[in-house]
Every structure is written in structure tokens, then in C-alpha cells.
């Protein structure tokens, strides 16, 4: 049996992030902790952010979930760490559009590995898995903006 269709979802780089998550853990100096879950399946993420001078100085995550949700969280932290909040939000918006199969130009922004998640758009049942960490990011920085 061929799993070629599945391979567009489970790219090697995704499985690598799943197996070896980047920025996993807690931040001692986090000024923001966001917890998000997907009530339909139980996936959960706790995002720790250290934001100063309009920049995401540091970010870590903890959580439980499937390969897509955990890999996406790992890739997200990698992509936004050290970035300006406005750039992080641009990447997040790019990511949302990628999930519905839209092509977007992001200029010179470094997207790290997140484009590997493009295949998720072909698996509608899994899109929520991939977007969980990004929703947590947006909730966190938007909240930070208000305070």
C-alpha cells in the first residue's frame, strides 16, 4: 500500500519537530502564560512568552497532543523567537492563510520550518491541530498589547 498521500502531511521535518521539540519547557522570566486547548480532542498547549520592547525575547511551550499539534508548536516557537511582535503576527496570519490553502507573500520574513505544514491544508480534520499553538501566540501577544 502506498502512503504517498500521507507523506504530504507527515513530512520528515514535522516528525523531527515532534520527536525533538524545540523550545519545549517553561520560562522562568515569562511575563505571559497562555493555556489553550482543543475541546473537541483534548490537545493542550501552555505557551510561555517573554515580550519586551515590542519583541518576543523568548518563548517556550509545554503541552500534550498529536504529532501535528506538537510539531506546529515547536515550529511556531522557532519561527517567532527573537522577532518583533508585529512580524510574529504577520507570520501567524500567513500561517492561517496557508491552512486554508492560500498563497501569501511574506516578503523577507524568515519562516523557519513552518512551510512544511502546508500539507495539513489537505487534511481538513487536522487543521485545528496545527493552528492551536498559533492561536495561543495571538492570544498572548494581543493580551500583552492591551496590558
Amino acid at each position: 500500500m502506498s502512503f504517498s498521500n500521507l507523506d504530504t502531511l507527515y513530512r520528515q521535518v514535522i516528525m523531527d519537530h515532534y520527536k525533538h521539540p524545540r523550545n519545549r519547557g517553561v520560562l522562568d522570566n515569562s511575563d505571559l502564560i497562555v493555556e489553550m486547548n482543543n475541546p473537541s480532542c483534548g490537545d493542550r498547549i501552555m505557551l510561555h512568552l517573554h515580550v519586551a520592547d515590542g519583541e518576543i525575547k523568548d518563548v517556550k511551550f509545554e503541552g500534550e497532543g498529536c504529532s501535528i499539534s506538537m510539531a506546529s508548536a515547536s515550529m511556531m516557537t522557532q519561527a517567532v523567537k527573537g522577532k518583533k511582535v508585529s512580524d510574529a503576527l504577520s507570520i501567524s496570519s500567513y500561517f492561517s492563510k496557508m491552512m486554508i490553502g492560500e498563497e501569501v507573500d511574506v516578503g523577507n520574513l524568515d519562516l523557519a520550518d513552518i512551510q512544511a505544514l502546508q500539507g495539513v491544508s489537505k487534511f481538513p480534520a487536522r487543521i485545528r491541530c496545527a493552528t492551536l499553538a498559533w492561536e495561543a501566540l495571538e492570544k498572548g501577544v494581543n493580551h500583552n498589547d492591551k496590558s
Binding site: 480532542c41 483534548g42 498529536c66 501535528i68
Partner: peptide, 25 residues
């Protein structure tokens, strides 16, 4: 292997199962 991933691989073979917390947290 997370149940979601099990379910996606089974679905690719035409097999429908449920994955998640089954409304019983």
C-alpha cells in the same frame, strides 16, 4: 502514537474510527 495520528493513517486506508476524549474528560 497519538490517537489523532492513528485515526488519520487508518482513514487513509478507508477505516473510520474515533479519536479524542470521547466527551469523557
Amino acid at each position: 502514537i497519538h490517537p489523532h495520528d492513528v485515526s488519520t493513517v487508518l482513514d487513509s486506508q478507508g477505516i473510520a474510527i474515533r479519536a479524542g476524549h470521547h466527551c469523557a474528560q
